[in-house]
């Protein structure tokens, strides 16, 4: 064997590290990322387990004890009606968790990844149609449209749910404010797919001509099989990173919407409504904790998502230094 034999040949393709053992270990070594992960998990768990972990109900009033500061019985104080702030914050995170997770699952994972894979792999007119629709959504001022959609479609959604009110399960859903949840997560999902679809598409465009895809196609694999078995696993990294960022962004938008009064509404607590209630100047002057408590939780959650997303990005795409 000569030296020339050793140097000739294609350079190794850049390895795509999966979120397997090595990458996980690298992530575990980033202390900040771990702190963020813990913060997110705590807030998520508290939100999901709200009925069991909250010391008080979200609507339980203690009218002798309004606007109270932190105390042993109310660790984060109470609001205008003497409702426990800690319980309300936990219930508000339940709202945020449910809506952002549902919107990411439908909008980001199903719509975004699916359309991105299709547009990138199939190409042609399908690619054109999908990407132009994406352009249109991208060009729409999203806050304004969310405002319009939720304002205009709400009565129709409520009608729809009312029709099923006599049904055993659906009746309970209406009671629990399901139309509100449905509306907000639907609106978020509608705008949530564009970014992920674009990212996936651009990645698939470069993977499309790779040897293993060509080999799969040559051996007669169907489009569905190539997408699911060969391309999807290889865009997994991008999906993980962008889902992390999007969960934060969705939570932020949900808070914006409920701040505007078009998200989850009274009496169910939401961060947006709590912040809105705490931020008028007279309330700020006398009882700043009404603003600072929800603001601190929101800041922690969204910041943690961003830092974790950054760390994941570093771990999963090591070419950047």
């Amino acid at each position: 064997m000569t030296d020339a034999d050793l140097t000739v040949g294609e350079p190794m393709e850049e390895a795509h590290p999966r979120l397997g053992g090595t990458a996980l270990r690298r992530l575990a070594r980033k202390r900040l990322a771990m702190v963020c992960l813990v913060a997110i998990v705590v807030i998520y768990l508290a939100g999901l387990l709200a009925p069991w972990v909250t010391p008080y109900g979200y609507n339980e009033q203690d009218l002798d004890n309004t606007f109270a500061g932190p105390s042993l019985s109310h660790p984060l104080g109470t609001d205008r009606l003497g409702r426990d702030m800690l319980s309300r914050v936990i219930w508000a995170s339940q709202t945020t968790v449910i809506i952002s997770a549902a919107a990411i699952f439908t909008g980001g994972l199903v719509l975004g990844v699916g359309l991105g894979l299709l547009a990138g792999y199939v190409g042609g007119w399908l690619d054109n149609v999908i990407m132009r629709v994406a352009d249109a959504f991208f060009a729409l001022p999203d806050i304004l449209l969310l405002l319009l959609i939720t304002a205009t479609i709400r009565p129709r959604v409520e009608d729809l749910f009312d029709r099923f009110e006599s049904w055993p399960v659906a009746g309970g859903l209406v009671e629990a404010g399901a139309p509100d949840y449905f509306l907000v997560f639907g609106a978020l999902a509608l705008f949530g797919w564009v970014g992920i679809a674009r990212l996936i598409r651009s990645q698939v465009l470069s993977l499309r001509e790779s040897d293993y895809v060509l080999a799969a196609r040559a051996s007669g694999a169907s489009v569905g099989r190539i997408l699911a078995r060969h391309l999807l696993p290889n865009v997994g990294n991008i999906i993980i990173v962008s889902v992390t960022f999007s969960l934060g962004a969705m939570a932020g938008t949900e808070i914006l919407l409920s701040w505007l009064g078009i998200g989850i509404t009274y009496p169910h607590p939401s961060f947006g409504a709590m912040i809105a209630a705490g931020s008028d100047l007279s309330s700020l002057r006398a009882h700043p904790h009404l603003l600072l408590v929800p603001a601190a939780v929101v800041a922690l959650l969204l910041f943690a998502f961003n830092l974790l997303g950054d760390a994941l990005n570093d771990v999963l795409s090591p070419r950047r230094g």
Partner: peptide, 15 residues
């Protein structure tokens, strides 16, 4: 700087 990007303006402004 990332912190300020994470927090929505409607939190920053009242603070």
């Amino acid at each position: 700087f990332l912190f300020f990007r994470s927090v929505p303006v409607l939190v920053t402004i009242p603070v």
